[in-house]
Design a protein around this nucleic acid. Structure first.
Lengths: 142, 142
DNA sequence: ACTAATTCTATCGTTTTGGTAGCATTGAGA
DNA sequence: TCTCAATGCTACCAAAACGATAGAATTAGT
């Protein structure tokens, strides 16, 4: 499971995506619409801003906006930003690689070998899911 | 990332899988071979036993053995046993479904819709990885 | 009876999580 | 220029989860 922080981040990005290229949204409004504690959302948006996903305008009449097209923001990247490695074990991670304390020889570790496969496939799934995916209306029944 | 508990469980199952149908293995030996704290491994094996994956024989000359063929034990099930839901959000889970506090109408929730898709695909990947997968030697270079 | 093994339950220190508090800074408009 | 509505930043905190450890109870082969 992902953290609340990450889930809130995605919800906020989706909300901002709905208003893409239509000016600013207030933290307050996003927080109310999506039922997210306002001060908590502040921190999350700040993290997203520093990572370049959103932009903001300070002061009166300020607010947040999506800094990239919805198609260019994917779940894998947001997950890594807030929750770290996608891999199930640290030694199988790419961006958050860490040696396992309990591993004797990593090169021929079968655990690692299989978890690398799992990671690569789940990474693909998460990468192809973008903010745009959440914006497309579900297909209507005929 | 999975918990150490879950990772240790898989390592222990693989170790038991290597000796499948060849009698008992001692907790002590598995713990030493796999560099797992012995008392911690005890608890893990007990959980695995209660769930039917391993069997044990108490007393002198006792030990643990794999209770199912390696092909019938998959990573998805072990993950759920120790770490809970595979889905990234509780409302998208099957066996650990929970309503999200911050959700207004779940039926038309786009977050849920997409996370159900992600869950279904990662579940497939984890399900097809069995203890047998860890036992097969890697393909040799020609 | 002895001994080597699993069983069971409680406890514990540390880290992570989810959230709050409060002040600083910015900038539009009266 | 003053006000006020907004974001920016850092510190803090309680509760839960995690990764073990401890120790006594039970079981069974010899």
């Amino acid at each position: 499971m992902m953290s609340m922080k990450c889930k809130y981040a995605i919800k906020a990005l989706v909300r901002l995506g709905q208003s893409y290229d239509q000016g600013y949204l207030l933290i307050k409004d996003i927080a109310e619409d999506e039922t997210i504690p306002k001060k908590f959302l502040e921190q999350i948006l700040l993290t997203l801003k520093r990572a370049g996903y959103v932009g903001s305008h300070q002061g009166n009449k300020g607010g947040y906006y999506l800094a990239k097209p919805p198609k260019q923001i994917n779940v894998a990247d947001i997950y890594r930003l807030f929750d770290g490695a996608i891999a199930l074990v640290p030694c199988a991670a790419v961006k958050y690689y860490e040696k396992c304390d309990d591993c004797k020889n990593e090169v021929q570790c079968v655990i690692r070998r299989e978890f690398m496969k799992i990671k690569e496939q789940t990474r693909q799934v998460m990468k192809k899911t973008t903010i745009q995916s959440f914006l497309n209306p579900p297909k209507k029944k005929k």
